[in-house]
Each structure stands twice: as structure tokens, then as C-alpha cells.
Design a protein around this nucleic acid. Structure first.
Length: 330
DNA sequence: AAGCCGGCCAACCGCCTAATT
DNA sequence: CAATTAGGCGGTTGGCCGGCT
């Protein structure tokens, strides 16, 4: 998405220039509802204007009434989507900032593919935007190949599953957990994340003072507030009951940094995850399938690097940007 | 110059849940 | 309590564009 906004803006401009008809024309012409077939496809600037006008008058909601009141030949769903993703005045335009990218990765590590919830954490950004960004990112990772999966983490995950702690993560993500626990879990090469700038602000995190390592579990009310404080009031997270909760068994699998030791970024990552190396006897290289073996669907790709993400970042859920360090003297 | 390919994005589709009747 | 409706969410697709060969 980065650096593509010009492209997108150009697209928008060319589109706008295409439909320079007036609102009246639109109402009188092809955009008129009047019981005819609902229009599909790209929105025109005229339709946008009609929708904006409608929302100004009637407010958000009751989207199915838009067609009736404004003559717009679009279904309610389409109107809602258009408003939410493009016309809302509080939308932030432009590429994601490095901080936002960081936040997305962090949030995804906690939530998985809960785009709407992630969007609630990123003011001015839409779930669609985040989803697109993430999917593109995963595709890039897929192509980069040579994934590495931290064996001890997988082991931890398996153990956690056997101990029935997994159930606290997300009851709605059974398949996801299943995926995670299978040996053919696609690994992601951490080095790629760093070298390709997918983890743009990671070094800053590592440089955080150890004093910031206060533990704040996700199940705490603080974490909950953090998670939903910025949510639009009427918006209720569909899977409220499935908030990911990392209990101790899972948290213990998080990387532990010795802040008395100087790490380079890569060393930190590799060290903290016990990344697969040729000297790792426990890791069967053959069961480390590259992402590219997966079929094209995003769904599988998006298999939520749920735990994985948490391990990447070494954050505790609910404590954004707070790396976990353990003093070697303790 | 033309064709191919991948990135990116907007929008649709199907499903789910809550509210309403 | 069941059926219906509306809104919301995540997955997926199709088209446009630019870069590369």
C-alpha cells in the first residue's frame, strides 16, 4: 500500500472525471432506484455525492432506506460499505505510516484476522484497508520463501494445546489452532521480516529500556479497555467472547531477551526464537514447508500467525509496544 | 511497442448475530 | 419462541496500473 496511493488517487481522479454528471442527472438517470435492478460495480462521484447528502440529512444507519429516500440504486449494504470505507469524514487518507504498520502487525499477532477490531485500534483506517495491506504483505512473504519456524515455540504450542490452555485463545478459531498445531504450519522467515522492512520499528522496541517491561495480561480490564476504547459505540465486536487470552503457559513461550547482552536486530530475533539453524537437532527441516506450498487462497495463508506474531514481538497482549525482557540476574 | 505479471484496491458475496416483529 | 430483517464482518474476486521482459 505504501507508495501506491498516487496510483489509487490517479484511479480515483480518472474515475471522477469520467462521471461528471450532476446529482440531478444521476437521480433521473441510471442511478435512480425506483424498484429497478440495483446497481453494482464502482461508485461514481455522483453516487457518492448522493450518499453523502443522505447521511448529512439522516445520519448513519438505516442503510436500506437510502435507496428509498435518495433514489440511489444501491443496496443498503453497498451504501454502508461505501460510506465506511471511503466517504466517512474521519477517514485517514494515504499510506500507512511505519507506526501504523507496526501496530497492524502487532494487532494481528494478538487478534488474527479480526480486521474490524484492528481497524478500531487504528483511528481513521478501515478494516478493508488493513485487510488488503495484510494480504499483500503475506503474499510478499509467501514469495520470499525459505521460511523458518521456531521449534521450541511449536513445541510450546503443542504442549499448551495438550494442557488445554489453548482453549483460552479463541474459541472461534478452532481451525486456526489446528493449523497452528500441525507440523506443516507454514513458517515465516524472520530475517525477511527484518530485511524487507516488514518490521520497520522493531529495533526501537528492542531499544526500549527494561523498565518498560511491565506485565499486563490481555485478560485485564486495562487490556479490554485498550482493545475497545476507540470502538464506535454501536459497534460490538462479534467475537467478544473469543478475545485472545494468553495465559502463563503461552506467555512463557514468548521470547525472553537478556538486556544485559548486546544484540543486533537479527540476533535478537534469532536468539529469542531459537530459530532453526543447521545446528538445531530438534528441527526436522523436511517438515518446514515454505509458504509457497500453500494453495493460492488467502484464507489459508492468512492462517493467522497468531502465536507466531506474539512471539515475534515479544509483547504481551494488551501492552502494545512493550517488549518483554527478563533480567538475566533474576 | 506489446504482452505478461504482480501489486494494489474497491467492491461483492456469504455468513453470522442482534434486533425487531 | 420463531421468523424476518438489518447490520456487520471476513473472504474473495475482478479490474486497473505500472514495471519488467
Amino acid at each position: 500500500m505504501k507508495g501506491t496511493m498516487n496510483k489509487s488517487e490517479n484511479k480515483q481522479i480518472s474515475k471522477v472525471s469520467q462521471d461528471s454528471a450532476s446529482v440531478e442527472e444521476a437521480k433521473a438517470g441510471g442511478n435512480l432506484g425506483g424498484g429497478g435492478p440495483l446497481k453494482k460495480g464502482p461508485w461514481t462521484s455522483v453516487e457518492d455525492a448522493i450518499l453523502v447528502e443522505y447521511v448529512k440529512k439522516h445520519g448513519e444507519g438505516n442503510w436500506n432506506a437510502v435507496q428509498k429516500h435518495s433514489g440511489l440504486s444501491r443496496c443498503g449494504k453497498s451504501c454502508r460499505l461505501r460510506w465506511a470505507n471511503h466517504l466517512r469524514p474521519d477517514l485517514k487518507k494515504g499510506a500507512f505510516t511505519p507506526e501504523e504498520e507496526c501496530r497492524i502487525i502487532e494487532l494481528h499477532s494478538k487478534m488474527g484476522n479480526k480486521w474490524a477490531r484492528m481497524a478500531a485500534e487504528l483511528p481513521g483506517r478501515t478494516d478493508n484497508e488493513i485487510k488488503n495491506y495484510w494480504n499483500t504483505r503475506i503474499k510478499r512473504l509467501q514469495r520470499s520463501g525459505s521460511p523458518i519456524y521456531p521449534a521450541d515455540v511449536r513445541l510450546q504450542m503443542k504442549n499448551a494445546g495438550e494442557d488445554n490452555h489453548m482453549g483460552t485463545l479463541s474459541t472461534g478459531d478452532a481451525d486456526h489452532q489446528d493449523l497452528l498445531l500441525r507440523d506443516e504450519i507454514p513458517d515465516v522467515e524472520l530475517n525477511n521480516l527484518f530485511s524487507h522492512g516488514y518490521l520497520p520499528c522493531l529495533p526501537d522496541f528492542f531499544d526500549n529500556p527494561a523498565s518498560s517491561m511491565r506485565k499486563q495480561g490481555v485478560s485485564s480490564s486495562h487490556a479490554y479497555d485498550l482493545m475497545f476504547s476507540r470502538m464506535h459505540p454501536p459497534k460490538r465486536p462479534r467475537e467478544l467472547e473469543t478475545l485472545p487470552v494468553l495465559d502463563d503457559s503461552v506467555c512463557s513461550a514468548l521470547p525472553v531477551f537478556n538486556h544485559n547482552v548486546e544484540y543486533t536486530g537479527d540476533q535478537k530475533a534469532a536468539d529469542s526464537f531459537n530459530l532453526c539453524t543447521s545446528s538445531d537437532p530438534d528441527l526436522n527441516v523436511t517438515d518446514q514447508l515454505p509458504l509457497s506450498v500453500l494453495s493460492g487462497s488467502h484464507a489459508l495463508l492468512n492462517g493467522n500467525f497468531f502465536f507466531f506474531g506474539a512471539h515475534i514481538w515479544g509483547y504481551e497482549v494488551g501492552a502494545p509496544f512493550t517488549p518483554i525482557f527478563r533480567d538475566s540476574t533474576s
